[in-house]
Design a protein around this nucleic acid. Structure first.
Lengths: 225, 225
DNA sequence: TCTCCTTATCGTCAGTCTGACGATAACACT
DNA sequence: AGTGTTATCGTCAGACTGACGATAAGGAGA
């Protein structure tokens, strides 16, 4: 029996933490708000979940609208529902984390709003509780690199061990020994599949090209010391 | 500007995966539904988020209502918002995971509904998408045991190494070598703090009692082989 | 073409960690 | 006193780790 008086109505939105690596930095996609509240302030991209749409579908739709991208890694991050997070009304936001390789396009701006890639450390104060959501997304990415093959989500389909190592170094903010990283990463079963091709796009001796293998988790994991 | 026509109204609920160890099994708290839909079927405990309440507060309130318990571990698990998960209306459910020591009380039933502890493997078909939520919660618990001190949440404030080992064995469903487990667990910095007391409640030679230490993550982790 | 520079990849080695399992210790009960 | 039960400490070989040396294989410039 459907009695609307039984429950208070909520607005439900999805917000996206879209991370990529640009010019040697871990960057997040931000859009400038064109309306109050927080007009003019930078915020995470997102929008209302539609009547007939699952949460995952809403996140994928918003991601496609903002970046034009499809086929990037997208996972649910968590939900944020403080009663006062939006002064207009009661909003619950379901945050998603997306990881993308460096985008050749500088982000197609939707509507009239600006968009930019901002280094995650210097994003400044964001609208609503988006600063916390961004921090949670970055921490999720950092820890998932340890025990999942998600680092490959920042790479092109074919990539070298050095390119993957650069992903780890930039996301973790630490330097890694190239030789030990090579040994460990090639030793994890199911992580890398050699394509047989080589490339010299990084300079120096030609490097093997790999694509991501079938492993869902890393055994043993690549731990941050 | 608040224009309700801009967004579809949702109901927001919290659902709880409350896990404990009873008679050598990992069990979840289930309640029997008293109303359609799924009338008479077992479901996770939960309820609507109130107008002026955060998600965390709603989860804590529901947990206290259902179990009378406070001070147990409670963390957000994820959100479930398929458009057709509840035939009455559009509902987004924010699931929480709670871990509790074995409860002396047999669960105070709220309202007129039944409640019981069910082994997680034989819970049967649950209402709505609660089967999936329960499975996600169990998997979260299993993996968090590896790299966090959360196993202690299943124990009394003071516990022995053997009691903690039993937690790992029951949650993971594997047998562990008592000697190696003892060495590893006492070697993780910040995991255990000796109380100085001993107990013979498990029989045999008296065992040291410990309480949980300040560590938030386990270095090195206790890995499932 | 030869030399140098850069990066990739393989090896070595000592210290640490792991799993398997033996040996004792310290109680309760008979 | 002997026996059963659990707790806790040791040992040992193999795997893994971080530090770092050595070699390979390309490009750029003399």
């Amino acid at each position: 029996m459907y009695r609307p008086s039984d429950f208070p109505p909520f607005a439900v939105t999805v917000d996206l933490v879209v991370l990529t690596l640009r010019s040697d930095e871990l960057c997040a996609l931000l859009v400038r708000r064109g309306e109050a509240p927080h007009k003019g302030r930078w915020a995470l991209p997102g929008g209302f979940v539609r009547e007939d749409e699952s949460l995952d579908a809403a996140a994928a739709r918003e991601l496609a609208e903002e970046t034009g991208l499809d086929r990037v890694h997208l996972e649910q991050l968590g939900s944020y529902g403080d009663p006062r997070r939006d002064p207009r009304m009661r909003v619950v936001s379901v945050a998603y984390l997306a990881l993308a390789p460096d985008l050749p396009v500088p982000v197609a701006g939707t509507d009239a709003s600006e968009a930019r890639w901002s280094p995650v450390d210097t994003a400044g104060k964001l609208a609503f509780d988006h600063g916390r959501i961004l921090a949670d997304g970055v921490e999720r990415a950092r820890s998932k690199l340890e025990y999942t093959p998600l680092g490959t989500a920042f790479c092109a389909p074919d990539f070298t061990v050095a390119e993957l190592r650069r992903v780890y170094e930039l996301v973790w903010g630490t330097a890694l020994d190239a030789r030990n990283f090579h040994r460990k990463v090639t030793g994890v079963p199911g992580l890398l599949e050699p394509t047989g091709e080589t490339t010299t796009r990084d300079g120096g001796r030609p490097a093997q090209l790999y694509r991501r293998g079938p492993a869902a988790t890393l055994h043993p994991p690549l731990v941050r010391s």
